[in-house]
Design a protein around this nucleic acid. Structure first.
Lengths: 268, 268
DNA sequence: ACCCGAATTCGATATTACCGAATGCTCAGC
DNA sequence: GCTGAGCATTCGGTAATATCGAATTCGGGT
């Protein structure tokens, strides 16, 4: 396997639920010999991508934080989203995320917890979040090029978490095409019984969906006024899109032609 | 060269001032053939550490943002610093950083810009920041194990930026030993003529300095009340240290025995 | 003091990272 | 519309190194 892929795999195993890992742990997770994992991890620790806490205990390192600062300062989406995220979290007191898709996993570009006593932790959106059970996941799936999407769906593990979880592929496909037309996705009690999430697309100047604006709300509050949260998410996403230079010509008349997505990875 | 080190190098070349790079660019920066750089960059883009904007144009990718979120949720220092950073930036309106040392470069663990019309951008602290010309750099140097520090100083490029920059190694060494005793460092107009920075150590429960709390202020405001900023930095750093479990037994009586620093990398 | 599990070291082998030359692509100038 | 320059990209051969398994050391627990 290529070195870059290997290192990506290693780093991806450092998660919110397991932020510290050992040599043997990584070895078995990747199916490598302990000695190989040892060399990898220690190498990464020397460069600063990881940090050695104790012999054989590793965490993500300072270089990650540094790179993230660069990203936060230079990435158009994050930059444009910053004030809107802060404002929305402040105004409504709910947890807010800006999310993209990395391969088959979600990644939070920014996160802000609400200020209410009962609320959702910022950790809900991470690489471990099941795509099919949160609003942002569904929305981002719905924006993918159709061919690629169909291939991906086949390989997704549609774990059932509650009785509301969508576990049938056909059902998911139907939902996604509706979401693509609506420009809005929600998942109410589909992952955790007491969690509701919804999301709206953030579009670049070219009209391509580059991220999702996501709201995570305790179910008890969400079901009091679902329409309101829907409006909040869409409005916030549109505001960010506007800051990215998107001209909302005819939001109601229809979406982009055929949902065609331009990605340079498609040249394969 | 080892793969981990190579990849660290590549990523480190994506900076605030040059957030987007091309194949040939990286190749010449690392002294590789174009084809090698090509394979590296595209590999990284596939894993999500980088993002391909156009053929041959790369930026940091969503995986970096995701990892940073993990770090922000699980790293004790960042976690403990979050409220203090927010509070300090809010109260005084100045730009605030939490900084560590990665090899020979600074890395910002968190950053918050002030809200004043005239203020310092958050980008001041990055891997490109000269160690010897900002408070955080000096402070972190001063906390290093002595032997390692002396070796590092010899290899530092003490570029002169203004007439106040410390460019003599002997002068720097003297300053650093004072800083270690004081538990405070400042750099007034040593990098940019109109910039003042100061920093105080953040200590873990074991008393080891794990990061620096840094204040970046326009010189015009700083020189009005330098003592006040000093107090703010020290107080904030101490507050964070307290949240990390540090018992400040005798701050005035003296520092840690000999400034001995425990690092698992020292076993070499 | 002893033992057990896990990390680390070490040498042999297969993988792949690297290079240089040839090709393809995009854009600027004519 | 054509041509040329500067890139990125592809490809095959070679040298470097990632990987493995066994032996050793280290640290925590009894």
């Amino acid at each position: 396997m290529k070195a870059a892929a290997r290192i990506g795999q290693v780093l991806s195993h450092f998660t919110v639920t397991a932020p510290e890992r050992g040599t043997g742990e990584i070895a078995s997770l990747l199916g490598l010999a302990n000695s190989s994992a040892h060399e990898l991890l220690n190498g990464l620790a020397e460069t600063g991508l990881l940090q050695k806490q104790a012999p054989g205990r590793f965490r993500l390192g300072p270089l990650v934080a540094g790179l993230a600062q660069v990203l936060a300062n230079t990435d158009g989406v994050i930059e444009a989203a910053r004030p809107v995220v802060a404002r929305t979290a402040e105004d409504h007191g709910e947890t807010v995320h800006v999310v993209t898709l990395t391969g088959r996993h979600l990644a939070a570009l920014s996160a802000q917890t609400g200020n209410r006593p009962v609320g959702v932790a910022r950790g809900v959106i991470s690489s471990e979040t099941p795509l099919h059970a949160v609003g942002a996941g569904k929305l981002l799936l719905a924006q993918m090029p159709t061919a690629e999407l169909l291939r991906l769906i086949e390989t997704l593990e549609l774990t059932g978490f509650t009785d509301r979880t969508v576990t049938a592929r056909s059902h998911l496909r139907d939902q996604l095409s509706m979401i693509r037309e609506d420009g809005f996705a929600e998942a109410v009690g589909e992952w955790h019984r007491d969690l509701a999430t919804c999301a709206a697309p953030i579009r670049s100047h070219a009209g391509v969906c580059v991220a999702a604006f996501s709201l995570a709300v305790p179910l008890s509050r969400y079901e009091l006024q679902p329409r309101a949260y829907r409006a909040i998410a869409i409005q916030a996403a549109d505001r960010i899109s506007a800051r990215l230079g998107w001209q909302d010509i005819d939001r109601r008349a229809g979406q982009l032609p055929g949902g065609k997505s331009v990605s340079w990875d498609d040249v394969a």
